[in-house]
Design a protein around this nucleic acid. Structure first.
Lengths: 133, 133
DNA sequence: CCAACCGTATTACTCCTATAATACAGTTAT
DNA sequence: ATAACTGTATTATAGGAGTAATACGGTTGG
């Protein structure tokens, strides 16, 4: 049975996305293996103090990713194959990139300029100053 | 007089951010120079077919960046000094891009893969909410 | 069978963002 | 001085995102 006991009390972003990330991390770390029984939507919702539909939203996304399988009326199970693990790894990276892209666009940067600067700064490691203006 | 004639009819994101980007691009490209008279909020709003307050929101951000100066009741002018240009450049490039590069490298991505994903995700920018159905 | 679970669908509420409507106040040229 | 502009503040509206309330129908074990 997949456990949500280690679900972080605080976190960034909407709850349903935090649930998605939590399960993804478990799959990537190997703590969730193929065939593991997922706790029901209602159980997780009670544990997290949210509505079952919020958990359902997360489970739906996880099912879209192929990480869990659900049959109406029955329990849900993890579906962890080499393919899904690789998909999760790619998804985690894609999420990182997505955050980065959003930050860049929010700052008003042009696409071409962003790509150019990233390409130029990629190999320079001592670039991270961290001062503000 | 700064011209909005070349303002792109279509674009992504909210209008007020598109205005901000448009002016920033003009400053970076040198088509907007120091002391240039900015068209009034109402003129720009009529040109773009939006409310004056939408333009005001953009102008406020530009003023926060030091790119324009406004006096209540009087016209607004561009303030393009080496300092403001440098400030924009630092903000848009050094700050964000270096964060991007370090974040992506920390996630173990290859340079080529990162550039490719950024390029592909640039126009989508959806968090991760909904593909499929 | 049937009670107690399960997943799912529909609808509504709340909050936030982008934009608009309106009103107010300052500058400037005549 | 005053008309015609200017910037600014306040409030309202529309839409979307996240979450909740509720109800419905399927599965399963005793």
């Amino acid at each position: 049975m997949v456990s949500f006991a280690a679900f972080p009390a605080d976190g960034e972003g909407p709850i349903y996305l935090r649930i998605v990330r939590f399960v993804r991390a478990g799959v990537a770390a190997g703590t969730i293996v193929d065939g593991d029984e997922m706790p029901s939507r209602r159980v997780v919702s009670a544990l997290l103090g949210v509505n079952p539909n919020t958990v359902q939203k997360a489970y739906r996304l996880l099912e879209d990713e192929g990480l869990i399988v659900s049959r109406s009326g029955a329990k849900s199970y993890a579906s962890v194959t080499p393919e899904t693990v690789e998909a999760v790894r790619r998804k985690l990276q894609a999420e990182e990139v997505s955050r980065v892209v959003s930050a860049l666009r929010r700052s008003g940067m042009e696409k071409a300029a962003a790509l150019e600067q990233i390409s130029r700064l990629w190999d320079e490691d001592e670039q991270e100053g961290g001062e503000k203006s």
